[in-house]
Design a protein around this nucleic acid. Structure first.
Lengths: 357, 357
DNA sequence: GAATGATGCGTTAACGCACACACTTTACGC
DNA sequence: GCGTAAAGTGTGTGCGTTAACGCATCATTC
């Protein structure tokens, strides 16, 4: 046999192996390696095992440049399920703007982001949107798990090879997925702390509780109530329904405050805080989300604190994680935490033109 | 002549032309086009003109993927100038950790990040580090413009083709560059607001002012003073020097507070706030940066608020911007704002494992 | 007038991957 | 026993760019 060591390229054992290298180590051809990597089938179980072992051991990662150049892959699609962007006071639009930024950056890599919207108030509509994405054949998926009873079975029957991200809120489900978002309970705690710091000890506070909203919001309310009470502050509760018209809410609050004049502050655990700000004038007001109405209220001093979950960052990060999977088969973390931001009039502007907008 | 329209690939007149296409139009070979594009010489003036005209007219842009795959380009280096990572209470280490994350992500794209450290207390040392980077041949540069008198001439004589990012602080200079960071003045304002919200109107506050530190810190102090006074609150000033030992500082503060018992709160405009926290016990304390000592103080209740400039995000974003330039010749924005974060004990943990760590 | 060098230009082999295609082997029916 | 299908595998080509290489054509020199 011809000794050709000197012709052999100097492939360092620990620099990125190529498909050819994997094929050599497994004693098969590149074609077989390719079929294993792309789950195309038509490979013996024995070879699949062998190749996968070598791939794992040597840490094979496809070369993006070669992969894209070959053109064979075509456009990969990241599917995103979203409530209609204008719902929840335009909140979803902010999430989408982060995703759209990621999409622009990913365009040269032929990764596209397909956003399918559904009516947040119509649980069955999200089934339609989900099916639509499936039909369009996406290779990765990001969804906000609202309507958990509907979403859970959909998520659990999803092809296990498709990476899944939950954003905004988390949901238990027996399938591997990544959560990108923040801890709602801790948000409530933080709100209580802010009121505690800025009010005299004796003054009670009012918590606006939405009976009909999701688990995520309930957690915020609970965190608030528990922390406030633990620090010796009375919490009065005003029950509200999201379906009530704004005027109704405003008058409810005005009435409530008139009946309880000692109340020093108010916490509204969602973006509708702007609706109550006018009624709360002269008291501390803490709410959620940098939606236009709330931003205006903060600028004009009708609000004191807004907590933010950085919707743009959340969207950007969700798409970014999925793209890393599609490009490099990087596995998803179990969770990516989005920090809880405290926004005042004085740091508002810097948050509005934040890093991912 | 043979009519071969059906063999001709359907090249849309307005989708990205390839080198081959340019060569065909110019009636030369790809080799000649290559020599023109890379200014390698050995081409007739006539052909250079012809090819350059076609390139301009058809808007030719090299295909990044083919370019990188061919290996001709080799590894691109982003140079980073940094104070020794352990200086400023480990602050720079946090910035670097964001950059290191970006570096890991960029590795498959054959972009490496080279970090050169200098002694922050020795202005001339940063010249050495700068020259070292130049010698190692970097194609992009990120620097924190401390020692502006030294840095400015270095930056201004830098090859104008090399994209430049200032991070942490900004600096005027007559060369195009991008600033990644936050507005220091506004940080001071925010600190004053937080003290204002949590203290009775009559109580004065103390501002620790460091005479010998940079412009960036002076701005924070100014913002604080101006805003606090404008909202009718007395500001007492304790002058300090960064070179004083911690014990000295602590006793200075204790003495100062003993002499002015009505003081309700304290602002330290840099990461050394931990040094003063013990002395300030029982009063509101606002400081800067999530360095280990301050984090511990916040957890244990010796500090109330920490402002953060998201050092990891800052580092990550700086490197990310430069990489987009190197990969796709995307132009740098003039500025990327890093939001001012307000961190309390209650949202500390979520900030520590933030999105870019 | 032959040897030498400089100049201008075309050809071609990588680069790593994706996929169409062709080929071999085994399984099964008649 | 032959034909046919299916399963499993290898080969070859192309993607657009880079850069080494080779071949001409001149101008210069002894």
């Amino acid at each position: 046999m011809n000794e050709n060591m000197d012709l052999e390229r100097t492939t360092d054992k620990n620099d990125p192996p190529t498909m050819k290298e994997i094929a050599r180590l497994a004693g098969v051809s590149m074609g077989t390696v390719d079929r294993v990597l792309h789950h195309r089938g038509r490979v013996s179980a024995e070879n699949i095992a062998k190749i996968e072992a070598i791939v794992a051991e040597r840490g094979y990662r496809p070369n993006v440049f070669a992969s894209r150049l070959s053109g064979g892959v075509g456009v990969r699609t990241i599917g995103v399920l979203m409530p209609r962007l204008d719902q929840d006071f335009n909140y979803w639009n902010q999430v989408w703007s982060g995703m759209a930024k990621a999409a622009r950056e990913l365009e040269p890599f032929q990764i596209s982001v397909l956003c399918e919207q559904f009516d947040r108030n119509n649980p069955s509509d999200c089934v339609r949107a989900f099916r639509l994405l499936e039909t369009n054949g996406m290779q990765a998926l990001a969804i906000p798990p609202i309507h958990s009873q509907i979403m859970r079975p959909l998520a659990e029957t999803l092809d296990p090879l498709i990476p899944l991200v939950f954003f905004d809120a988390d949901m238990q489900c027996n399938r591997h997925r990544c959560f990108v978002g923040q801890d709602p309970w801790q948000g409530g705690v933080l709100a209580a702390k802010l009121l505690g710091l800025t009010l005299e000890p004796g003054r009670p506070v009012v918590l606006v509780r939405f009976k009909d909203d999701d688990e995520h919001l309930q957690k915020r309310s609970e965190g608030f109530e528990v922390f406030a009470k633990a620090s010796g502050r009375a919490v009065l509760i005003l029950e509200q329904s999201l379906s009530d018209p704004p005027e109704r809410r405003r008058s409810d609050m005005s009435l409530f405050l008139a009946r309880n004049p000692s109340i020093g502050g108010m916490f509204v655990p969602n973006s509708s805080v702007g609706e109550y700000a006018q009624a709360g004038l002269g008291r501390r007001v803490v709410g959620y989300d940098l939606i236009p109405g709330n931003v205006a209220a903060l600028r004009e001093g009708r609000l004191d604190f807004l907590l933010s979950q950085r919707p743009e960052t959340m969207g950007y990060e969700s798409v970014r994680l999925l793209s890393r999977f599609l490009l490099f088969r990087e596995s998803l973390p179990d969770r990516t935490r989005i920090p809880l931001d405290v926004v005042l009039k004085e740091n508002l502007e810097e948050h509005l033109v934040g890093v991912t907008s």
